[in-house]
Structure formats: structure tokens, C-alpha cells
Amino acid sequence: MLKLQKSRKQHLIIFTPYPEAGKTKTRLIPALGDIGAANLQKQMTEHTILEVNKLQHKSAIAVKVRFTGGNGELMQNWFGLDFVYQTQGEGDLGERMMRSLADAFDNSAEDVIIINTDCPGLNSQILTTAFEQLQCFDLVLGPALDGGYYCSGLQQLIPELFSQIQWGTAQVFSQTVEIAQKINLSSVYLTTLADVDRPEDLPVWQQIWKGIG
């Protein structure tokens, strides 16, 4: 079994919106209402943070939270001073991910993984596996059932992976894999997980929530 090399500088970037009623998880508003949809995002982000905390108990991994909406003070009030907070900035998802990766590598990171907070099945074990696999592969991807991905890991910035992608569609994962193959990257895929974005996805979170309770 692979072991984490603690000497490597490992960074985890969490992409999340600040939960604001009427602006967060808008596709769930018809089922949950403005406040209910925002509360669901809040709960799922907190669940992800708990799993990240478990990961940090296993290895010295630097964590940065990249957020949309809200501000740094609101994020600190939410999760405290243990993390670094920074806005995702402008642009499409690919541009924001590239910016975050470039910042991490500019700050001496060697293994960088970006995750979102929409897949409640993401846990510390999967994150541990992702960092382990990143020592052997150029690209680590966590596919989502909706055709996107919830996790992307790299040892260097590869801009091609974040351009010419139809973000927000069911082609994101397949297009990324195709690009990786064209530029001869060695790739490995994690467990496929379900996103919670639409009313029909709610049972995915309800199952996790029962387990927490």
C-alpha cells in the first residue's frame, strides 16, 4: 500500500460558495426554497470540512478555501482561523481553477488537489488515496455521476486541462480525459460519486445526513 510522503509539500484547495439565500444551490430552490437550498450548501460544506480535518490528522497538508460570495471575514467566522481564505476571482470554472493551482505551485506546493463541496460521499479515505496516487500519476480525477468531476490533482500546472472544456455540462470529465490522453499524461480515477445539485439528487445527501445523525 502506498504511503504519503510527508516530505512533499501537499496542498488541498476547497472550492465552495458562501451560502446565501437565493444565490446558492439555485436549482434546488424549487424543492427547498431559498433558505433551505442555502442551508443545504452550508451543511454539505461543513461535512466536507470535517472530512478534511480528518485528513489533516493523518498528514501535514496545507488547506486553502477558495470561495465565491460572502467575504473573508464571513468565511473566518464560519470556519475559524485554521485555514487560508481567498476568493476564486473572475472567469469560468477553468480559469478560476487554473488561478488557484498557479498560486499553490507558486507557493512551493508539489502535490495540489482541488475539490468541491457538492459530493457528500467524498471522505478522508478518498482524499488520502488521491494524494497517494498523485505520487505515481500526472493527473488524479474523481469522476462525478453527472459527467463532471469532484476532485482534480496535479504535480504541476497543465493549462490545457482547463481550456476548451464545456463547464457545467455532462462532458466535463470525458473532455478532460481526452485532453489528458492527447498530451500523454498518466491518469488515475477515484471512486465515482454523486453530486447534489438537483431535487432528484437530494436522497444522496439525506443518506449521508442520516449517517451523521
Results as ranks from 00 to 15, higher is better:
1 M>N: 12
2 L>I: 14
3 K>A: 11
5 Q>C: 15
10 Q>R: 13
12 L>D: 08
14 I>A: 05
14 I>L: 07
16 T>N: 06
16 T>Q: 08
17 P>I: 02
22 G>T: 07
23 K>F: 13
23 K>M: 12
24 T>F: 15
26 T>V: 05
30 P>I: 00
30 P>R: 15
31 A>I: 00
32 L>G: 04
33 G>R: 05
36 G>E: 04
39 N>F: 10
41 Q>P: 05
44 M>F: 06
51 E>D: 05
51 E>H: 07
52 V>H: 12
53 N>A: 13
53 N>K: 02
58 K>T: 04
59 S>Q: 13
63 V>D: 07
63 V>G: 09
64 K>T: 07
69 G>E: 03
71 N>S: 09
72 G>T: 11
72 G>V: 12
74 L>I: 00
76 Q>E: 12
86 Q>Y: 02
91 G>F: 06
92 D>Y: 04
93 L>F: 15
94 G>F: 02
96 R>I: 08
97 M>Q: 09
97 M>E: 08
100 S>C: 14
105 F>W: 11
106 D>E: 11
107 N>I: 01
107 N>H: 03
107 N>C: 12
108 S>K: 05
109 A>P: 11
110 E>P: 07
110 E>G: 13
114 I>Q: 08
117 T>G: 02
119 C>W: 00
120 P>Q: 04
122 L>D: 03
123 N>F: 06
125 Q>D: 10
125 Q>H: 05
126 I>A: 08
129 T>C: 15
133 Q>T: 07
135 Q>F: 11
142 G>R: 04
147 G>I: 01
149 Y>W: 14
152 S>Q: 12
152 S>K: 11
159 P>V: 03
159 P>Y: 01
159 P>F: 00
159 P>N: 11
161 L>H: 07
163 S>I: 01
163 S>N: 03
164 Q>M: 07
169 T>F: 03
171 Q>K: 14
172 V>C: 11
173 F>I: 10
173 F>Y: 09
174 S>D: 10
175 Q>I: 06
179 I>Y: 08
189 Y>M: 15
192 T>Y: 01
192 T>G: 02
192 T>C: 14
193 L>K: 03
196 V>W: 02
197 D>R: 05
198 R>Y: 05
205 W>H: 03
206 Q>A: 11
207 Q>I: 07
211 G>V: 00
213 G>A: 14
